[in-house]
């Protein structure tokens, strides 16, 4: 579903990604694990078209991305951002936010689909005309997930979707993402620094460090705390004793 071949990205003099390659199968949940500066978010930005200055080969579903060119990807891939406060327009109601993608693509039955989506992400229908500041962090993140799913894309990019949330709310959002994935057969590419979240959510993972993939592993290896690379082991150690 997602294919990344020899992806390199440079910002001026510094190279932030050194020919990174990986594949994600349909319906799979793949984690990019790393600390800040590892380049994990840059991969998402390249896949979502926010960064177009890259070399290599990128493909999502049937769409081949070209460097220097913003592809029309809305129905193929959508993203859930880390900060539920910055990712919603402060003056637009939930209804505005959720019907916007439908309006852009001229799709019918907006009212019905907005209500159905509110149900799907577990938001009460009476919230429909609320503004973001009337919602809690967890509720906002549900709106962000709903917005990402309005056009039924097969792929979701998740950029640390729960790291800004309280732990009890994190559990609700992770459960929701997992249910939606099973229901709709979604493919997830999750960026995170949180190992336990990967254990819960993902099937496979890649560990990134300074723009290179250190190790690719099955989640079973992570759960058994048996990653092969030294850096992987170090991450496990810190996660348990940090």
């Amino acid at each position: 579903m997602i294919s990344v071949r020899d992806l390199s990205v440079r910002f001026g003099e510094t190279t932030v990604l050194h020919s990174v390659s990986f594949d994600v199968a349909k319906g799979e949940s793949f984690a990019l694990l790393g600390e800040s500066g590892s380049g994990k978010s840059t991969i998402l930005k390249a896949l979502s078209g926010q960064v177009t200055d890259w070399t290599g080969a990128l493909q999502i579903a049937d769409t081949v991305l070209r460097p220097g060119h913003r592809a029309r990807l809305a129905r193929t891939v959508q993203m859930v951002f880390q900060d539920p406060f910055g990712s919603l327009h402060p003056r637009r109601t939930l209804d505005d936010t959720l019907s916007e993608p439908l309006a852009i693509h001229g799709q019918p039955d907006r009212d019905k689909r907005v209500l159905a989506m509110l149900d799907a992400v577990g938001l009460p229908r009476r919230f429909r005309f609320r503004l973001p500041h009337q919602l809690s962090g967890g509720q906002r993140q549900r709106v962000a997930i709903a917005r990402a799913l309005m056009l039924d894309p097969p792929v979701l990019l998740l950029d640390e979707p729960t790291s800004a949330l309280d732990v009890s709310v994190q559990a609700e959002i992770l459960n929701l993402l997992k249910s939606l994935q099973e229901e709709k057969g979604l493919t997830f590419l999750l960026v995170t620094h949180d190992l336990p979240v990967v254990s819960f959510m993902c099937d496979r993972l890649a560990i990134l460090r300074a723009g290179r993939i250190e190790e690719m592993a099955d989640v079973a290896a992570l759960r058994a705390a048996r990653l092969e690379s030294d850096y992987g082991q170090e991450l496990i150690r810190r996660s348990q004793h940090g």
């Binding site: 926010q50 809305a74 910055g86 990712s87 916007e100 852009i104």
Partner: peptide, 21 residues
């Protein structure tokens, strides 16, 4: 801001983004 990234990802045109967002 990420809310503008989000509408851009929905393939909104620049005119639409400036006028409505």
């Amino acid at each position: 801001a990420e809310f503008l990234d989000a509408v851009r990802m929905q393939d909104a045109s620049s005119v639409r983004i400036i006028a409505l967002h």
